[in-house]
Simulated assay, not measured.
Amino acid sequence: MTGEVRVLLFHMASGPERIAAAYHEVSRRLAGTPGLLGNELMCSVLDPTEFVVISTWTDLSAFQKWEQGEAHRDDTAPLRPYRQSGRAFGVYEVTAAY
């Protein structure tokens, strides 16, 4: 078990350029966040309106500390309008890796 945590945020957008701009803005705001190892924007190959942002954290406590902090909501605001209703996010701990 590595202890790393992946956070998946599901989004929908009719134009990839709009969500890409929001993703880059959020990424700039989060640069240097303690415990954040990186993030990725992924587009579905089956539905070009579906996107997922995957962030990688050193561990669950680092993610929770950031999520409960004051800056969390402001820093992620540009992506919020694209959040998928229903299943908006998931938090997963890495239990095995090669």
Score class of each variant (00 low, 15 high):
Met1Leu: 02
Glu25Ile: 08
Gln64Leu: 01
Glu70Val: 10
Glu17Trp: 07
Leu46Ser: 12
Val53Tyr: 12
Leu46Cys: 12
Glu67Thr: 00
Thr49Asn: 11
Ala96Thr: 15
Ala88Pro: 04
Thr56Cys: 03
Ala22Lys: 01
Arg73Cys: 03
Gly15Ser: 09
Val5Lys: 01
Thr56Gln: 11
Tyr23Val: 03
Pro78Cys: 02
Asp59Leu: 07
Asp75Ser: 08
Val53Ala: 11
Leu36Tyr: 03
Met12Val: 09
Leu30Tyr: 00
Leu30Met: 11
Ser44Asp: 09
Arg80Gln: 10
Thr2Phe: 00
Gly32Thr: 02
Glu50Cys: 14
Gln64Tyr: 00
Val5Asn: 01
Gly86Pro: 05
Val45Tyr: 02
Val45Gln: 08
Phe51Tyr: 15
Ser27Cys: 06
Ser55Leu: 13
Leu30Phe: 10
Ala13Lys: 00
Glu93Cys: 03
Glu93Gly: 04
Asn39Met: 14
Leu46Asn: 15
Thr95Phe: 11
Pro16His: 04
Gly69Asp: 05
Val53Cys: 10
Val7Gly: 03
Leu9Ile: 06
Glu93Tyr: 04
Arg6Val: 04
Glu67Met: 02
Glu70Arg: 00
Tyr98Gln: 15
Ala21Val: 03
Cys43Gly: 05
Pro81Glu: 04
Gln68Cys: 05
Ala62Trp: 02
Pro81Cys: 09
Leu41Phe: 12
Met12His: 03
Val91Cys: 12
Pro78Tyr: 03
Gly3Ser: 03
Ala96Gly: 13
Asp74Pro: 06
Leu37Gly: 04
Glu70His: 11
Glu25Arg: 15
Asp74Leu: 09
Arg29Met: 01
Val26Gln: 02
Pro81Met: 08
Phe10Ala: 09
Glu25Pro: 00
Asp47Cys: 06
Arg87Ser: 07
Leu30Pro: 01
Thr2Ile: 08
Asn39Tyr: 05
Arg6Phe: 07
Ala71Val: 10
Leu36Thr: 11
Val45Ser: 02
Arg83Trp: 03
Gly15Val: 06
Ala21Asn: 05
Ala71Asp: 02
Lys65Ala: 06
Ser61Asn: 01
Pro78Lys: 01
Glu40Arg: 13
Glu25Lys: 15
Gly35Ala: 15
Glu70Lys: 00
Tyr82Pro: 00
Thr33Ala: 11
Val53Leu: 13
Phe89Gly: 08
Leu41Cys: 13
Arg29Trp: 01
